[in-house]
């Protein structure tokens, strides 16, 4: 059942191509052949590695900077009030708009692409962490304080378990965003990556099979990354916040 939508898409796609008689748009089979061609020439691994490399670095740096910053802002209301307007101002700016600035600051290549992915990831992460801290109930804080916990222990034993579930959902959604901007990020004169594959295929004349192959690969890897992140949500530590007191008792 889970594949029926996919099968339907493939059937509709093939039928539409056959009926349209358009020689520019590729059929699912020519896209599969294009992926096989990429694999055979060794480009598949090269492009996938390049995109994953840039997304990993951009995303992880955003996690390292954004999550602690978000937690700090959530914890310190004054800091949040001071910085929230700035964050709200930056949030709607598309990563694409940063491309010229990225080139001026970081030149052409991996660094600029990583910067674009970092920018796309950091704001949602800061906001997620801020909201997660904001949603920790006064009961939890008071309970921790009543037990005489130091600020460090309060962070480790009350804050971390309480915000983890929300944080992991935010991390998963943000990884999706990071992966989403890979095409835009790889427009910056890099010579590898799935985004580059799509842009480069446009140069190669009538190679829309390669364009769609790049799109399909981005989609497939996106699904893979998302399912890996979903496994994090099932970790016992991450499920704490979801449990009702009765479920927690039973566990």
């Amino acid at each position: 059942m889970s594949c029926s939508g996919l099968v339907m898409l493939l059937v509709l796609w093939s039928a539409a191509i056959a009926l349209a008689g358009n020689t520019l748009l590729p059929s699912p089979w020519s896209v599969a052949a294009a992926i096989a061609e990429l694999a055979q020439k060794g480009f598949l691994v090269k492009h996938v590695v390049a995109s994953l490399f840039r997304v990993t670095w951009g995303y992880l740096m955003a996690v390292v900077v954004g999550v602690p910053l978000g937690i700090f802002l959530g914890w310190r209301r004054r800091a949040e009030m001071a910085l929230a307007p700035l964050l709200e101002l930056l949030r709607p700016i598309s990563p694409l708009a940063w491309i010229p600035i990225a080139i001026l600051w970081f030149g052409v290549g991996d660094l600029a692409a990583i910067f674009i992915i970092f920018l796309a990831s950091i704001l949602p992460l800061i906001l997620t962490a801020m909201n997660a801290v904001g949603s920790v109930t006064a009961t939890h804080w008071n309970a921790g304080r009543n037990f005489g916990l130091s600020p460090v222990d309060l962070a480790r034993k009350v804050l971390a378990p309480a915000i983890l579930p929300q944080l992991i959902v935010g991390l998963r959604l943000t990884l999706g965003i990071a992966w989403l901007v890979v095409v835009a990020a790889e427009m910056i004169a890099v010579n590898s990556g799935l985004g580059f594959l799509i842009i480069d295929a446009r140069n190669a004349g009538n190679r829309y099979d390669l364009v769609v192959a790049g799109m399909v690969l981005i989609g497939l890897i996106g699904v893979g990354l998302d399912s890996a992140m979903r496994r994090l949500e099932r970790l016992p530590a991450a499920s704490w916040g979801y449990q009702t007191p009765v479920e927690a008792e039973a566990a």
Partner: peptide, 19 residues
């Protein structure tokens, strides 16, 4: 040699002395 995809990027790379 370094292949770009458009003139605006070449312009920015020249201005910033990357090219």
């Amino acid at each position: 040699p370094r292949m770009f995809q458009g003139f605006p990027e070449i312009k920015e790379a020249l201005i910033s002395n990357r090219m």
